[in-house]
């Protein structure tokens, strides 16, 4: 079984335990695929779906879209576009941060300012 399929099934089954709308059939219908296809994905019998379907599945299951895409072996097209626009800058940045600890990476991330309230 693929990690993507296993994780998808785990999350869907966990949600189904408290909400019947998360049956294989209903989730498949909401993301616009056949139940048999979703079943194959969950069992690892089919490769992870397209980026659009993976994003619909992530939204349906309340999961992080980037993490879900990464599990499916993909990088979101908006991130690819960001890199394509300034390839040298972002390629250098990503390579330099490759081995940096999370704390160091967070220092280059924009932080929400807390004020006086």
């Amino acid at each position: 079984m693929s990690r993507f399929g296993t994780r998808t099934r785990q999350i869907r089954e966990r949600l189904r335990a408290s909400d019947r709308r998360y049956s294989l059939r209903q989730v498949a219908r909401r993301i616009g695929v056949e139940p048999a296809y979703l079943s194959k994905i969950e069992r690892g019998a089919a490769a992870p779906p397209s980026e659009a379907t993976t994003l619909r599945l992530a939204a349906e299951l309340g999961e992080d879209p980037d993490v879900f895409l990464a599990m499916a072996g993909k990088v979101s097209s908006d991130l690819q576009e960001i890199i394509r626009k300034r390839p040298k800058l972002f390629a250098d940045l990503i390579r330099q941060l490759r081995d940096a600890p999370d704390e160091a990476i967070f220092t280059v991330v924009r932080v929400v300012r807390d004020g006086d309230w």
Partner: peptide, 16 residues
């Protein structure tokens, strides 16, 4: 530290 990641408020405490 608090960041916005994909319309999610993410609170991180790497010092902990």
């Amino acid at each position: 530290m608090i960041t916005i990641v994909g319309d999610r408020l993410t609170f991180r405490f790497p010092e902990v």
